[in-house]
């Protein structure tokens, strides 16, 4: 059983997915907060792979990428960070999130192999729809890494079937049409859509985008089994590691 499956199986409450950008604001600080996340209450960690042109992200995560790259972040360093984390944590599921270009540059096969060896459990590649992910899926075969598919408020039933084909681990529900760090979604609309999606799949559904408070985490997390907090944590980290971890503690207490 994968770490992701195991985690959802053992939790009797919604999971908190916490996002940070690898290498933001620098390698050491980023690793410190990364290592502290599980104890602070992060059930699953989403680690952003920095990219110069993150078109699906709002200013908060754009700037996180800029800081990380300015401090020397590379794909290789991101994997170093994953290995350093796994050296003393073998149970917290870890999902890499990012854009396809740095993966192409690293080499798709090399990326899949390195991710597997380092202990990555899932991938969210924002600009890689199912129509184009064949090469990556092939490279991931037999390596136990889930491709986490994104579902959005404009996903209709015919499209949902395309997205569910080959999906594993969990689904990521983008709660608004927009970029990360935007305003919060209309709860009723998200809940109605998630109920419809559940009729087609047993996978847990993590709701993300615009989720900032413990109340958001509880409300959205209860709909499909998990809630994702990104920009709020990245913002808190600007003030320091303690501030970021204490926010995650607060967020997780609501669950």
């Amino acid at each position: 059983m994968s770490r992701i499956e195991q985690k959802f199986k053992e939790l009797d409450r919604p999971a908190l997915v916490s996002f940070i950008t690898a290498g933001d604001p620098d390698y050491e600080t980023s690793l410190e907060v990364f290592k502290g996340l599980p104890e602070a209450g992060a059930d699953i960690i989403e680690l952003g792979m920095p990219f110069t042109d993150p078109v699906a992200d709002g200013p908060t995560i754009q700037h996180a990428s800029e800081r990380a790259l300015a401090a020397g972040a590379t794909m290789k360093r991101t994997f170093d960070m994953v290995r350093a984390f796994r050296a003393d944590n073998d149970h917290t599921p870890l999902v890499l999130m990012g854009y396809y270009n740095p993966i192409c540059a690293f080499g798709i096969e090399a990326f899949a192999r390195t991710a597997h060896e380092a202990g990555v459990d899932g991938l969210i590649i924002v600009d890689l729809p199912p129509e184009e992910d064949g090469d990556l899926r092939k490279a991931l075969e037999g390596r136990g890494i889930d491709i986490i598919r994104l579902i959005t408020p404009v996903t209709e039933e015919s499209r949902l079937k395309v997205l569910l084909n080959g999906a594993s681990g969990f689904l990521y529900y983008v709660s608004i049409t927009g970029v990360t760090g935007s305003a919060s979604a209309d709860m009723g609309a998200v809940e109605r859509h998630i109920e419809q999606i559940k009729a087609h799949t047993d996978l847990p559904i993590a709701v993300g985008f615009g989720i900032k408070t413990p109340e958001d985490v509880k409300a959205f997390g209860s709909m499909g089994g998990a809630a994702v907090v990104g920009s709020a944590i990245v913002n808190a980290l600007q003030a320091g590691v303690d501030e970021a971890l204490s926010l995650v503690k607060t967020l997780s207490k609501g669950l």
Binding site: A56, V126, D127, L128, P129, L150, V154, T155, R159, G178
Partner: peptide, 11 residues
């Protein structure tokens, strides 16, 4: 090809 965020795919 078509490498875009899922939100844009239906449109």
């Amino acid at each position: 090809g078509r490498y875009v965020a899922e939100t844009l795919m239906p449109l």
